[in-house]
Amino acid sequence: MKSGSNLEKVLKAGHFAFTGELGPPRGCDVEEVKEKAQHLKGNVDSVNITDNQTAMVRMSSWAASLILLQEGLEPNFQMVCRDRNRLAMQADILGAYAHGIRNMLCLSGDHQKFGDHPMAKGVFDIDSIQLISMVKNMRDNGTFLSGAELHGIPKMFIGAASNPFADPFEWRVHRLAKKVEAGCDFIQTQCIYNMEKFREFIKQANDMGLTEKTYILAGVTPMKSVGMAKYMKNKVPGMDVPDEIIKRLQGAEKGKVADEGIKFACEQIEEFKEMKGVHGVHMMAIEWEHKVPEIAERAKVLPRPVVD
């Protein structure tokens, strides 16, 4: 065991993992975190806690992760490269581990231009792949990035993101390979809507042997409305939403669009369960946490396994 986190145990035991996501509040309201967490409890193996997502200031990721721990859920502490340099990153990793956080997700981070402080200085001292390598180095070699020895070693289960749909498509699997080489234990992908392209991506990853070296959790976000689908298609960089999906949602009965969105998500999950090289699903029900129990039920991923 690298970290002994619940997520690691579930994956290692060969179960199909199911992870969730929670965005911390734009303030210090603990109740808001607890409320969202209640919907996820027992329905997912681990919960990603976003780090100033879309470059909007929120309660810090490690702090919200601690609230989750107190509530009896396992957090997956996200860390972006935009807001901290290598000193602050390593310090936060140590602090997070000391408080019981065992999973991390290493990301570049959306550009600050998108957020509420567009003129902030973007740090990007190191990039996401370098961050993976830094965390692995801390864990496996017991040293800081500088080479100095650590007193007390943070044993994190190291995650990274992968976007199979950004251009150039041929390069995507190589970028995944770089993340694996840098030392990531699991991957959570960008939200998948274009299944055909994803099948091709996974096939490439299988052919390169990458899916044997890292666990792949396929990213799923159920569409709530036609407007959301169109927004994702046109406004979110690196997102691939085929027209069929939009048509399918448009074809749904009045008042049943969200239901159709969940139905499509469940069909995806059924396919992922059978897909070679996919080890689980990462459910990003953005501001839709209360729907997760229903989605998990309908996707037949309950009860979640308990592994000792």
């Binding site: 550009h111 990007f124 996401s128 950004a166 251009d167 690196g238």
Partner: peptide, 28 residues
């Protein structure tokens, strides 16, 4: 836009950078 040494990031969008469709993605 992020000064990455191991790019491109996941935001690259049909050859442009995530910050602006007018800005080419350097890594692309």
């Amino acid at each position: 836009a992020k000064g990455l040494y191991n790019g491109p990031c996941g935001g690259t969008n049909k050859g442009s950078c995530e910050i602006d469709t007018e800005q080419p993605c350097a890594w692309f």
